[in-house]
């Protein structure tokens, strides 16, 4: 009786959160899913037309969808691996508390508190061949031909430049998580390894990294999900251009739904993006779980 009364109390406590979750997340998600099977001009409910799987069929024949997906996959592969490798390296260095480590930590963490839009605008100005600092700097070090290069206006360099800025912005957060993970490793293990004659590399390879697997999984899943949802930096820095060269799925979705007035098609893209992220994250978690069992 007492137990049942407590359960009811917990249910009452959960209700407000459940209400907001349902109304502001679940319901819009269901509506978005349904609208991916429609064609609509976004103005009158009377104009909604059920088209079944037509939006999805059109999507698979749309070369700009494949272009955006390819850009997204390349982006995710490069930035996630860079964030994990650089993040782990810096975390190991900072965790050993070298001289000035607090200054370096602060420098790495500054981008976390800056808005993406501000960062994007800052780098756009810096990289501009007409008003930026990068051009004159390259001229000064004997690369005058690179001074007029349109870093964000060239098909070859637009996406790589966004990657660099993105890694710079996200690295601090990964380092923060990884340092927290490193500090949870019992010192006894490290000392025991040292007594057994393990080199620093051996300790990292056979003690630190296996014990860091759970936190590395968190870092990888978070970095992958965030990288797939990349939007703000692209919009601010290149607007997806030049001519789709830096367009990723979320920007493609925005363009179709809002700029071309096709919300049904836009939500179909959003649904596919959701499925892709779900699959990739699930795969990462499964691989990590298997690795942990093997250990």
């Amino acid at each position: 009786m007492r137990r049942s009364g407590r359960s009811k109390f917990y249910i009452w406590l959960l209700l407000p959160a459940f209400f907001f979750y349902t109304v502001f997340w679940m319901l819009p998600a269901v509506v978005a899913f349904l609208s991916s099977f429609t064609q609509w001009n976004g103005v009158s409910l009377a104009s909604i037309r059920w088209v079944g799987l037509a939006n999805y069929a059109e999507l698979f024949n749309d070369r700009w969808f494949w272009n955006a997906l390819r850009n997204n996959l390349v982006f995710v592969a490069v930035v996630v691996s860079s964030i994990v490798i650089l993040g782990m390296t810096y975390a190991l260095i900072l965790n050993s508390k070298p001289r000035g480590h607090s200054v370096f930590s602060t420098i790495f963490f500054i981008p976390i508190v800056l808005s993406s839009v501000v960062i994007g605008l800052l780098f756009t100005q810096m990289l501009s061949p007409t008003v930026g600092l990068v051009g004159p700097a390259l001229s000064a070090i004997g690369m005058p031909e690179a001074a007029n290069h349109q870093w964000l206006g060239s098909r070859d360099t637009a996406l790589p430049m966004i990657m660099v800025v993105y890694i710079w912005r996200e690295l601090g957060f990964a380092i923060l998580l990884l340092i927290a993970g490193l500090q949870t490793i019992p010192k006894d293990y490290l000392e025991a390894a040292r007594i057994d004659g393990a080199t620093p590399w051996d300790i990292t390879r056979y003690v630190t990294l296996p014990l860091m697997r759970p936190i590395l999984t968190v870092v990888i899943v978070l970095a992958t999900t965030n990288a797939f949802l990349l939007f703000d930096l692209v919009i601010v820095m290149t607007n997806g251009g030049p001519f789709h060269a830096s367009e990723v799925l979320s920007v493609f979705m925005y363009s179709e739904a809002f700029l071309k007035g096709n919300p049904g098609y836009g939500t179909a893209i959003a649904m596919l993006l959701f499925v892709i992220i779900l699959c990739v994250s699930g795969l990462q978690l499964a691989l990590s779980g298997r690795g942990q069992k093997a250990n």
Binding site: T124, L152, P242
Partner: peptide, 21 residues
């Protein structure tokens, strides 16, 4: 067209003109 014609935005271009460049 000025050097950053594919990467600059309209405000940057306007700034170049208004500053006599």
């Amino acid at each position: 067209f000025t050097a950053g014609y594919l990467s600059d935005d309209n405000d940057t271009a306007a700034g170049l003109f208004f500053s006599g460049k």
